[in-house]
Amino acid sequence: MYQQEQHLLAQPGGGSMSTAYQRVADSLRERIRSGELAPGSRLPSEHALMAAHGVSRNTVRQALADLQHSNLVDRQQGRGTFVAVQGVSHVLGDLRSFTETLLDLGVRPGITGIRIDVDEEPPAEAAEFLPGSRIWLVERIRTADGQPFCRMQSWVPDALAAAITPAALQKTQSLYAVMRESLGATPREATEIIRAEAASAEDARLLNVSRGTPLLSMYRWTRDASGRAVEYVRSSSPGDRYQYVIKLQQ
């Protein structure tokens, strides 16, 4: 019954190929995104999923682990697996763009308030990290289903700034996508620092919160595949709209 489950299987209609566990994960992901499986609700049992998809227990567990890695479900020992109750979340160690993270969570990404200018007085961290004497600030507000959740301020070197335009950001919804597709600079590794901060007057105005509202701020130093410094970024979100997830293993 299960002899094919680890082979590549054709999607219905002759579409792209995927492994058995990916097909199970995609099916559950779609049910979560559509609201059929609501936040906090319990997923079908492993046995029920095995029967519904014609796969083994190991395949079902691999699919659930994939959803847990994306923070879509919460697996509780002895109780079962539940749809995660969350705002926007990000797993530490994951260098995907915000757009990729939002899409994986079934949330519609958006960008507003784009501003791209030479920064005459960049933060010391940006000036020390990025090459060249002229540094650009790419600022935007990230939205999830139309609601602002993150103020992003990316400082980039002059050599990369020419291809970063409001039109390109609106089209791709991702600075990293612009870097990859137009500049050949694929973000490969980064160092992050996370701080609790109080919203400044400008943070408050852009995020539609009160001045002094607690923010979760992430500072990231990013290099591309060649080791070149390509971005220093501050991204700040109200604590009730964003969370970081740390997964530990012994």
Rank of each mutant, 00 (worst) to 15 (best):
residue 145 D to M: 03
residue 186 T to D: 10
residue 45 S to E: 06
residue 126 A to E: 08
residue 227 G to M: 15
residue 131 P to H: 08
residue 177 A to I: 05
residue 35 G to E: 12
residue 57 R to W: 06
residue 64 L to Y: 01
residue 181 E to F: 06
residue 202 E to A: 15
residue 97 S to L: 07
residue 154 S to I: 09
residue 84 A to R: 15
residue 127 A to M: 13
residue 109 P to I: 04
residue 223 R to V: 14
residue 64 L to Q: 01
residue 30 E to L: 08
residue 204 A to F: 01
residue 3 Q to F: 11
residue 27 S to C: 03
residue 96 R to A: 11
residue 56 S to H: 04
residue 51 A to D: 11
residue 239 G to M: 13
residue 84 A to N: 08
residue 35 G to C: 07
residue 143 T to Q: 05
residue 234 R to K: 12
residue 8 L to K: 02
residue 239 G to Q: 09
residue 204 A to C: 06
residue 37 L to V: 04
residue 216 L to G: 12
residue 32 I to W: 00
residue 29 R to G: 02
residue 208 N to V: 12
residue 15 G to S: 05
residue 202 E to Q: 15
residue 106 G to Q: 11
residue 247 K to T: 06
residue 70 S to N: 02
residue 143 T to E: 06
residue 26 D to T: 09
residue 24 V to Y: 00
residue 203 D to C: 13
residue 200 S to K: 04
residue 212 G to Y: 05
residue 80 G to H: 01
residue 193 I to R: 13
residue 160 L to P: 10
residue 172 T to G: 00
residue 14 G to E: 08
residue 174 S to W: 03
residue 235 S to F: 06
residue 33 R to H: 05
residue 100 E to N: 14
residue 185 A to C: 13
residue 204 A to V: 00
residue 229 A to Q: 15
residue 80 G to K: 04
residue 169 L to I: 08
residue 247 K to R: 04
residue 109 P to W: 07
residue 235 S to R: 02
residue 36 E to D: 09
residue 139 E to T: 14
residue 2 Y to L: 13
residue 139 E to P: 05
residue 235 S to N: 07
residue 134 R to M: 08
residue 217 S to Y: 00
residue 249 Q to V: 15
residue 32 I to C: 12
residue 188 R to S: 15
residue 10 A to K: 04
residue 158 D to W: 07
residue 229 A to M: 14
residue 248 L to K: 09
residue 61 R to F: 12
residue 176 Y to A: 10
residue 68 Q to H: 08
residue 25 A to L: 02
residue 207 L to P: 04
residue 6 Q to A: 10
residue 94 D to E: 07
residue 89 S to W: 02
residue 217 S to N: 03
residue 181 E to Q: 13
residue 44 P to S: 02
residue 31 R to V: 07
residue 126 A to R: 05
residue 135 I to L: 07
residue 124 A to V: 15
residue 76 Q to F: 09
residue 14 G to A: 01
residue 246 I to P: 02
residue 48 A to C: 04
residue 240 D to E: 12
residue 118 V to W: 12
residue 217 S to H: 00
residue 80 G to S: 05
residue 186 T to W: 12
residue 33 R to L: 03
residue 96 R to I: 06
residue 4 Q to A: 05
residue 201 A to P: 00
residue 170 Q to N: 14
residue 203 D to K: 03
residue 209 V to P: 04
residue 23 R to P: 05
residue 247 K to D: 06
residue 172 T to A: 09
residue 41 S to K: 01
residue 17 M to H: 10
residue 214 P to S: 02
residue 168 A to P: 08
residue 84 A to W: 00
residue 128 E to G: 14
residue 100 E to G: 15
residue 247 K to A: 03
residue 126 A to H: 11
residue 32 I to S: 05
residue 185 A to Q: 14
residue 205 R to N: 09
residue 204 A to W: 02
residue 192 E to D: 14
residue 172 T to E: 11
residue 167 A to D: 09
residue 7 H to W: 09
residue 8 L to A: 11
residue 156 V to W: 09
residue 190 A to V: 13
residue 84 A to S: 15
